[in-house]
Design a protein around this nucleic acid. Structure first.
Lengths: 135, 135
DNA sequence: CTTGACCTTCCAGCAACTGGAAGCGGCATA
DNA sequence: TATGCCGCTTCCAGTTGCTGGAAGGTCAAG
């Protein structure tokens, strides 16, 4: 199975697959012509990575998850801990974005949006003394 | 006013201020010794930028906002349009994160988190056929 | 005169790819 | 056999918005 097929099967762009190899997330064999040759196991790894990335895990977390996945003597507690920390990050990020959203929505609501120059949005940007919370 | 004072006054790291100058967001004068010399107007610009960045506007959007701010004949509609587009981006991002959060929370809840290897989180990563929505 | 806190420039690196150039491999067609 | 085209290869550069660090100049205090 060459990279094009592996790409179609995993949903990852060929460029991304080459990048993942470069950073050591997988090591596909090579054919005589130098083409990468993906075994089912490699494609499975790629699909695993695609899914973990889609859930927002970082590359390094994906590396750890993959190692845990392939370690039959893993403890599910290790996986859970990783996922919980990620969940907390997501929650913090959502809270930050909701705070931004609230501030911004208030400013937008107050802006006439016409041809005159008066604009509470610019006024706020220019004059606000405090920030909108941790970023 | 040198860069250290401008940094303290605006809340932006000196490194960031130098970077903003490099990409043309401001052009502080120079003293005879080569040190940057920040006029009140420059510090004001920096504070404006800090606030706009904290609200999540991109550097290019900040450049536009700054130009609008300093253009007395601006139309508030232009500012509002920019802010509304940003608001939509934030909303999309929040929705994405909430979808992730829901999926991940479900997986975490199902994981025993003990010393045994069985783990629904890894199982999902390995087997899920569909993704979690647009990213 | 030295110390230490500033300041300067420039180069490298972060995350996680993405785009593009230059050049093979392999198959079909003229 | 020549030609075309697609897919594969590597390598380099760029993205966003900084951040760290090296090497060195400046300035006020002791």
């Amino acid at each position: 199975m060459n990279i094009g097929e592996a790409s179609a099967a995993s949903g990852l762009p060929a460029k991304t697959i080459r990048y993942y190899e470069e950073i050591g997330l997988l090591r596909p064999a090579r054919d005589g012509n130098g083409y990468r040759s993906f075994a089912p196991r490699d494609v499975h790894r790629l699909a695993f990575l695609a899914r973990a990335r889609a859930l927002g895990f970082s590359i390094e977390e994906c590396r750890t998850l993959l190692a845990l996945y392939e370690d039959d003597s893993r403890a599910s507690a290790d996986v859970k801990r990783l996922a919980e920390r990620h969940l907390e990050r997501i929650d913090r990020r959502i809270a930050e974005l909701q705070a931004l959203r609230a501030t911004l929505a208030g400013l937008v609501a107050g802006c006439a949006g016409d041809r005159r120059p008066d604009c509470p949005i610019l006024k706020d940007l220019a004059e606000a003394g405090q920030d909108v919370g941790p970023s």
